Computed example of a mutant assay.
Amino acid sequence: MKKRSFIPVVLMLVVCLLIMTSCADQTGENGGSSTTAEPVEIVLIDKDGNEKTVDLTKFESVTGEASFKKSTGAIVGPATLTGPKLVDVLGEIGGIKEGEAIAIVANDGYEMTLTYDQVMGQIMTYDEEGLALQVGGVEAIVAIESSDEGVLESPPRICFIGEGKPITDGHFWVKDIATIKIAESVKEWELSLSGIEEAKCDRSTFESAATCPDTTHPSQEWETTNKDGEKVVYKGVPLWVMVSMVDGYDTEDGHYRFNRDLSQKGYTVQVISADGYTVEFNSKDVAYNDGIFLAYLANDEPLDEDSGPLQLVGPNLPDKKHSVKQVKEIKLVNLPE
């Protein structure tokens, strides 16, 4: 009887083991991303100012589908998004408590503040037509992977996933996150605008306009002194930018654009306080005038209750009487036919 050689069998087993080991290095146990993926780091800052750098790939991830709505109304998505829950990430610095908020800052300087409720998913959702549905029913994650790079764009990114591919406001979807800091809570507010169209601008939308780097109308900053001689630096959005939301000159893709022709024909811009106090400007004086703006910060802090949430300020105001506090509404009246 001839003896069988076991050498080829042993060699085959070794080769198979090498192949299996190689495959295991390339995928997770569920076929996901590599276990040796590049770290995705952000800096967390607790309420006492202590910093901690964390690698988001080290957290347990969840996956869900979602879309976001641009300020113009365009819907981006849906896409499948994966990343750790925002609350789990915040747990590394003691978590967020009721009465607190988080300030998220991107590497390009864009900033967005989320209240405790918003962190917990209490934000407005929309249908496919962009119409409001309900508040809540979503979960905030810090996405690091996506089935559509056009949606994730520059990870890590705040996203809101849930059942039924929820659609939420895009200004909450902060991308390319650099830091997340525990901050004092902020009050929600709303500015009413009317003219050829009507619009509402809430706190987060205004904050987005004031810090967005990809814009033709950058935020304004003005240093002055108060009645006690103390330095005050105001930050905000030009009045003409807010006027552009309701002056009937949106582009086909929905972007707001200031209606220069209408402003030159002439109309009146009214800025109205919560108590009804009103000042008026000629549209020609408002057009592209960055020296008249709505401030929401003074020395990098939200305006106090006596002045905020918005105050009309700037070096080009006609006089101090035009520095309206507690701005609640902007109207375009005496519009040309």
Results as ranks from 00 to 15, higher is better:
Thr205Cys: 02
Ile177Cys: 08
Glu223Ala: 12
Thr225Gly: 00
Ala209Phe: 15
Gly195Arg: 05
Lys70Glu: 15
Gln26Arg: 13
Lys265Ala: 03
Ser147Cys: 05
Glu223Gln: 12
Thr225Cys: 04
Val243Lys: 09
Ser147Asp: 07
Val237Gly: 01
Ser283Ile: 04
Leu191Tyr: 06
Asn282Asp: 15
Ile19Arg: 06
Leu86Gly: 05
Asp46Cys: 04
His322Gln: 09
Gly73Ser: 04
Asp275Ser: 13
Pro166Asp: 14
Val40Glu: 13
Lys321Asn: 13
Ser146His: 04
Leu262Glu: 08
Pro166Thr: 12
Asp304His: 00
Leu191Thr: 01
Pro155Arg: 00
Glu221Lys: 08
Met242Gly: 00
Lys97Trp: 02
Ser307Lys: 12
Ile292Ala: 08
Glu190Arg: 13
Ser192Arg: 12
Ile42Trp: 10
Ile19Ala: 13
Gln220Ala: 10
Ala143Thr: 02
Pro315Cys: 05
Asp253Cys: 01
Val269Ala: 12
Trp222Tyr: 15
Leu114Met: 15
Phe258Ser: 08
Lys97Ile: 00
Gly94Pro: 12
Lys265Asp: 14
Leu297Met: 09
Glu188Phe: 05
Val279Ile: 10
Ala183Met: 01
Pro8Ala: 13
Ala66Gly: 00
Lys175Ala: 13
Asp300Val: 03
Glu139Ser: 13
Pro336Arg: 09
Glu111Gln: 14
Met242Tyr: 08
Thr251Leu: 14
Gln134Lys: 15
Glu329Arg: 13
Phe206Lys: 00
Ser147Phe: 03
Ile75Glu: 06
